[in-house]
Amino acid sequence: MAVRDPEATKARIFDAAVAEFARHGIAGARIDRIAAQAKANKQLIYAYYGNKSDLFTHVLGRCMVDLAAAVPIDPDDIDGWMDRLLDYHAAHPELLRLLFWEGVEYGTDELPDEPARQAHYARKVAALRDGQERGVITDAMPARDLMFLLVALAGWGAAVPQMRRILVGSADSDGEHLRSSIREAARRLAAPRT
């Protein structure tokens, strides 16, 4: 008789849900496919995570926590932070796809976990604001705007790889030229006023 391992089952469901949502979005994802990929029954998915929207919120929330833990913001080393962010997105393109699908689904409507997400980003913005107060990065714009611009710089190429290929071309297949340009743009955006 096989021994049940609820944590292993949850992990398989989570991994299958990440892949399904990244590929098909919230509306296009199917619990049947997640269950088949995870080798679990649908009832377990509902028992562990609730409905499909709840599962998506859980998946994206955990992916965001993983990113925050792996790549903490460092206003004293914007170049290094951008490199780590670019590396993370290259290794985990599903995160930006999940954020893209969330934007398609919710638009400007409030997200189910918006207060928690705001608190998450408030801590990052506070780190940038601290860098502004210490004079290591610019105070020419609000820290929240700077955060938005830096995150956009780091993520856009991975979020829309077709535009990266069209604009940058396949000659930059290793991405070093574009990475260098992104670092330079981030450096200029964040540079303290003289």
Rank of each mutant, 00 (worst) to 15 (best):
R134K: 14
E114Y: 10
E114L: 13
A90Q: 01
L111C: 13
G135C: 12
V104F: 09
E94R: 03
E133M: 13
A91L: 13
T108W: 12
G131S: 01
G135H: 12
V125Y: 03
L111H: 12
R97V: 02
F100P: 01
G107M: 12
R134F: 11
E114V: 13
E114D: 08
G135T: 13
L128K: 02
E105I: 11
A122I: 05
V104P: 07
H89I: 09
R123A: 06
A90C: 04
H89P: 10
R134M: 08
Y121N: 09
D109N: 15
R117T: 11
F100V: 03
A90P: 01
A122L: 05
D113K: 05
H92L: 05
P112D: 08
L128V: 07
G103A: 08
L99Q: 04
K124E: 07
L128S: 02
P93K: 00
E105Y: 14
H120W: 02
R117G: 06
R117P: 09
A122D: 06
A91G: 14
E110N: 15
E133T: 14
W101P: 02
D87P: 13
H92S: 03
R129C: 08
E133C: 13
D109S: 15
R117K: 10
D87T: 15
V125R: 03
D87W: 14
E114G: 09
A122Q: 07
L96R: 01
D109M: 14
E94V: 04
R129P: 09
Q118V: 11
Q118T: 09
Q132V: 05
G131M: 01
V125N: 02
R97F: 04
E102P: 10
L95Q: 00
H92V: 03
R117H: 09
R123S: 03
V104G: 08
A119I: 07
T108D: 10
Q118M: 07
R123L: 03
A116P: 04
G135Q: 13
L99G: 02
L95Y: 00
A122M: 06
H92C: 05
H92W: 06
A91T: 11
P115F: 05
